[in-house]
């Protein structure tokens, strides 16, 4: 069932341990049919154990105490299904390569999730009063939908298109198939009634750049990995000494965190 693989994916690379995931994974949960719930109680672990067996026989351990856990890597807006589409799509837009990390490792999908949860997702500082009319392209976005809603619709449509074309969910497609879907959106080959497919693609692309390169305080650009790719030094106080210099200066980047005295 659809859910199980998603749960497994999340488990594979992020979540140290979570009983509920196993619970859900094994619960035979389904949507669309009449069976909407069901549980095998023995799969629930006692809350005090720090390890658990999933039914593949793997044991997942809690992260070692000396390894910093990034508690910020959880979802504020996306559902897990949406998150997995977002993560796969941004990784295709900005893939890991010889240059260094891609969107997934940089945490771009978390960045987008967190941004959508706030003012940006609600178009909080944009003029959203009616009346709403279709305008010329030169007049810019004239829809009534807020970014959150556009992402909700856009991601669902990506899933629908994947299912229709490849009979699989977007995140289960091969990278080449995922590119086919993204291109279909980029070129408006997908026809949508509510939002512009290419407009949605542009938004995803822009958000990917933001998530790769914004200060890590927002949850993307993990370990300043995006900055390192571009040799961008981050938050430096002064370039007076190098401004006239011919030689390219490679510096260890610094984030805004360093700008606050952490006692």
């Amino acid at each position: 069932m659809a859910n199980e693989t998603e749960e497994q994916d999340l488990k594979d690379h992020r979540e140290p341990d979570h009983s509920r995931r196993n619970f859900l994974k094994n619960s035979g949960y389904a949507v669309g049919g009449l069976i909407v719930g069901g549980v095998v109680g023995s799969l629930l672990r006692s809350p005090n154990k720090s390890t658990t067996n999933n039914n593949n026989g793997n044991t997942t351990e809690k992260a070692p105490a000396n390894e910093a856990v990034n508690f910020n890597q959880a979802l504020m807006h996306f559902t897990q299904e949406q998150f997995l589409i977002m993560e796969a799509a941004t990784e295709r837009i900005f893939p890991a390569d010889d240059n260094g990390p891609g969107a997934k490792e940089l945490g771009v999908a978390y960045f987008i999730d967190h941004q959508l949860a706030g003012e940006w997702g609600l178009n909080g500082r944009e003029y959203m009063q009616g009346p709403f009319f279709k305008g010329e392209t030169t007049q810019g976005y004239q829809g009534r939908l807020k970014r959150r809603e556009i992402f909700d619709i856009g991601l669902q449509e990506m899933q629908n298109y994947s299912n229709k074309k490849f009979q699989k969910k977007f995140k289960d497609l091969t990278p080449e198939q995922q590119d086919t879907v993204l291109k279909a959106f980029e070129t408006d080959e997908v026809k949508l009634t509510t939002i512009s497919a290419s407009g949605f693609f542009k938004t995803i692309f822009g958000s990917t750049m933001e998530g790769a390169y914004a200060d890590p305080l927002y949850g993307g650009n993990g370990n300043m990995g995006g900055w390192k790719l571009k040799n961008f030094p981050g938050n430096q106080m002064s370039y007076t000494k190098i401004i006239e210099q011919d030689k390219f200066e490679k510096m260890q980047p610094v984030s805004l965190r360093e700008h606050l005295p952490h006692s």
Partner: peptide
Amino acid sequence: KERKTEDYYMVHDELR
């Protein structure tokens, strides 16, 4: 909007 049980996998979030 549509809602489903999977929407609540991150529901243990008192703030939100």
